[in-house]
């Protein structure tokens, strides 16, 4: 037995396993901020990454342009046919917008959950091990980013800001498996149906909206948007379209499978949304139970 403990390698192995568990435990707990060495390392590599990713973005863009040229004729035809509708739609939207503003002025409620300030950012890296679906963007706390802000592309919501450094930040995509990641959503049908975006089916590549009350009328093809009720995300960001509805495992609620509007792969430019309306304080809530985003 004493000889067993004298074995240097075994002791090193045991010590390193203890250190491993301690480190994982340290990084898994709920952290509002990364420690400064981590931030320093991330900012430094972020700087190098942006040096590398800008020229490679340019090259990739060039090849994409070449591909686009091939489809130009067909696309042009299709776009022309849509253009006619667009003009009338645009004038309608203008009128509605003006109407809305006027009515809001009358009501004295000029800010809504819908208003946000977009902040463009470029993707400079992505987690290569692909268990944690994360991307790194080139804007940080100096640009006014904060934890938990919603991140969108032109086609819809893709995720939220997970951690912020001075010059770069990490965005957790919706496709990541994280039980803490819940987003309050609305299915837009004849009536508004509320649910929570929770989880991602990796094989089918569909998002799951859970906790929809049974008996709600949801059909295939209806749009799902953020509700803005979590207090963090603005209202009205597109999440996706309903593909399938099924009862959940206890049969009490419905679960809708959604095809996300945004592509979670091949992301180049994103927008971070900064909500304008004031977040409610803890004291504003009656029972402080409201959680999530």
């Amino acid at each position: 037995m004493p000889q067993f403990f004298l074995n240097k390698r075994l002791i090193i192995l045991l010590v390193s396993i203890i250190v491993l568990v301690a480190l994982i435990g340290f990084s898994l707990r709920e952290r509002s901020k990364l420690s400064w060495p981590e931030q320093f390392v991330k900012d430094t590599t972020g700087w190098v990454q942006s040096l590398v990713s800008k020229p490679s973005n340019y090259i990739a863009g060039f090849f994409e342009n070449l591909q686009d040229l091939q489809n130009t004729y067909n696309e042009n035809k299709e776009l022309k046919s849509r253009l006619d509708n667009l003009v009338s739609l645009e004038s309608q939207v203008q009128a509605l917008k003006k109407d809305n503003e006027e009515l809001r002025a009358v009501l004295d409620e000029e800010k809504t959950l819908r208003d946000f300030e977009p902040l463009p950012a470029t993707v400079i890296g992505r987690n290569p091990d692909r268990w944690h679906e994360m991307i790194i963007i080139d804007k940080g706390s100096l640009n006014g980013l904060k934890k938990n802000m919603a991140v969108v592309t032109a086609n819809g919501l893709i995720g939220k800001v997970k951690s912020v450094n001075k010059f770069s930040s990490t965005v957790q995509l919706l496709s990541a498996t994280d039980p803490k990641n819940r987003i309050s959503a609305i299915v837009q049908g004849k009536t508004k149906v509320y649910g929570l975006v929770e989880g991602y089916d990796k094989e089918k590549k569909l998002l799951m909206v859970k906790a929809i009350p049974a008996g709600a009328e949801i059909e295939k093809g209806q749009t799902v948007i953020t509700s803005g009720l979590g207090g963090i995300f603005p209202e009205g960001l597109l999440i996706g379209k309903v593909v399938e509805v099924k009862p959940d495992q206890y049969g009490l609620n419905l679960t809708a499978l959604i095809k996300p509007g945004a592509d979670f792969y091949d992301i180049k430019n994103v927008m971070v949304t900064k909500k304008i309306m004031r977040d409610p304080d803890i004291t504003d809530l009656t029972d402080g139970k409201e959680e999530g985003s």
């Binding site: 390193s16 480190l23 981590e38 991330k42 890296g125 987690n127 091990d129 994360m134 997970k162």
Partner: peptide
């Protein structure tokens, strides 16, 4: 360690597995 800090944000997994 660099991989853990920059990409994974959970320190310890690759720091342990790579050398092992």
């Amino acid at each position: 360690l660099l991989f853990d800090i920059v990409y994974v944000e959970i320190i310890g997994i690759y720091l342990f597995v790579y050398p092992f």
